[in-house]
Design a protein around this nucleic acid. Structure first.
Lengths: 147, 147
DNA sequence: CTCAACCTTGTAGTCACTACAGGGTCAAGG
DNA sequence: CCTTGACCCTGTAGTGACTACAAGGTTGAG
């Protein structure tokens, strides 16, 4: 059986050595055997598992999602509804992030387009960030502390 | 002059009390006066400053960006090119994130659509995540996952 | 034997908060 | 006067997913 050092596994999976140790520490990646010199010695299943983790991370799944996915993936005869549910949930989250970022992009773009590039006193960007009195008007909060 | 407690400032600016103290600790928000009982006592300039910070955070600017923006905003007669540059840089970053997320969305959507919902052994989602031997040969590609 | 490249553990830093613990202050009600 | 409860104080530690050392041990080539 082929055996791999942590550095080799990192190179093959494009993962930093520290990250691999981190995944082991949090119990995401199984502990490998050790050599006589106390080096980690990985089998190809470890490499496969790490590749799975990295691929899922690339797709934006959280560590906890991946923990669940790995657990479910082990039961090859079970229905894959659980897997699909996690993926669908993640898809919804991604869509929410896209929507939020698009709103930000539009707002920032419009603000920048309006700025003529004069002095800061007239800068539209600053104005867009500064509190207009309207925004704070009529809050009903009264000062009641003494100095 | 009206004076405000930290709780009032938090209510007006929709900011948690802990967050206001955090901004003060990192030097983003000026230190307010204190009352006899050692309570923070804020003037309206503080409220304006905090509102600026919160608005900028809503638009996704980093704390360091905001530090710079606040510094620049103080010089009302200087040209606003520096401000615009920060905003433009941020706009580019947002566009990059949108592009990344759109790629993820497509990939996840296609994968989910292909899954017939049978057993995990045939699950397309798992297959999309599992390492194909060929995909792992000699790719020097590094991905910064942060999404 | 030396040297560099690799490996080990452990700790602390990142970002922008958030959540306590363990106490102090203050105004209102009894 | 005393109590109650809302508010405030400081300080520390936790979040997610790593990343970056420090200080030392192992290995293989020359």
């Amino acid at each position: 059986m082929a055996r791999f050092s942590i550095g080799q596994v990192g190179e093959v999976t494009a993962t930093k050595v520290e990250t691999i140790r981190y995944y082991e520490r949090i119990g995401l990646l199984p502990k490998p055997d050790r050599t006589g010199g106390n080096y980690r010695s990985y089998a190809s299943e470890h490499v496969d598992c790490l590749a799975f983790i990295r691929r899922a991370r690339e797709l934006g799944f959280s560590i906890e999602d991946i923990r669940e996915l790995l657990d479910l993936a082990g039961h090859r005869e079970s229905p894959c509804a659980g897997i699909d549910q996690i993926a669908a949930r993640h898809l919804v989250a991604i869509e929410g992030k896209i929507a939020t970022l698009k709103r930000l992009r539009r707002e920032l773009h419009d603000t920048l387009a309006a700025c003529a590039g004069g002095r800061i006193a007239e800068c539209r960007v600053i104005q867009a960030l500064s509190p207009h009195p309207i925004a704070r008007k009529k809050t009903g909060v009264k000062s009641n502390i003494r100095v």
